[in-house]
Design a protein around this nucleic acid. Sequence first.
DNA 1: CCGGATCCTCTGCGATACTG
DNA 2: CAGTATCGCAGAGGATCCGG
Lengths: 119, 119
Amino acid sequence: MNRKCTVFKTARFIGKRWTLLILLELYKGKSRRKRYSELKERLINITPKILSTRLKELEKEGLVEKRITADKFPIKSEYSLTASGRDFISVIRGIKKWALKWDKGSVICENRDCKHCEF
Amino acid sequence: MNRKCTVFKTARFIGKRWTLLILLELYKGKSRRKRYSELKERLINITPKILSTRLKELEKEGLVEKRITADKFPIKSEYSLTASGRDFISVIRGIKKWALKWDKGSVICENRDCKHCEF
DNA sequence: CCGGATCCTCTGCGATACTG
DNA sequence: CAGTATCGCAGAGGATCCGG
């Protein structure tokens, strides 16, 4: 396994800031589409640059699908999880399961215990 | 989930370079202990600084156990996976499984297909 | 309303040299 | 043998302004 390895790249990928949060936010609504502004509003303190960067990365990796309606104003762009994106949630669940098993469960996420996180 | 969240921290953690490789190297020998120099030799191109940094991080996170014999020369320090470290391999397997499922399986790891990786 | 473009800072990581 | 110390670069990430 080197830096070309998919597993390694995937690990680096999900290690980036906001990536998991964005996936979670899209997952919360199941397959419902979310507007860019909607995501920005919910992801407290995220900057527009990072959000658009991450969305592009996720789109490129095939976890997120973008749909634009440019025919009429205002232009809307909506994002949703693809099949692989939804499937990826199970990977995150694996991480969470491991984290909760080996202590670390006391840490809170935005004032809620990890145990009650929607993941 | 914010930057204090364990899941998020874990994700960032495994996203660091060499971390997975070190865990794999320690896993290869099952519970066998590995010397610092042994790890350095096997992990091609790793610098001593990064190796010692990662080992400290892993030790701090409780995935790796260090044992030193300083009573006689030469000083030996040996590393091995803890129970949580061994358990973490399953998380990596989850990542691999996902990666192989959604294409990406064609990428090679040090001239071997991911499918044949020991993880 | 949805981003792109810029600029700046800060950290990760690597190379090299050195030490108890 | 098992690490530190020092330097420097490149990329991640943030703030802010600009444009279709």
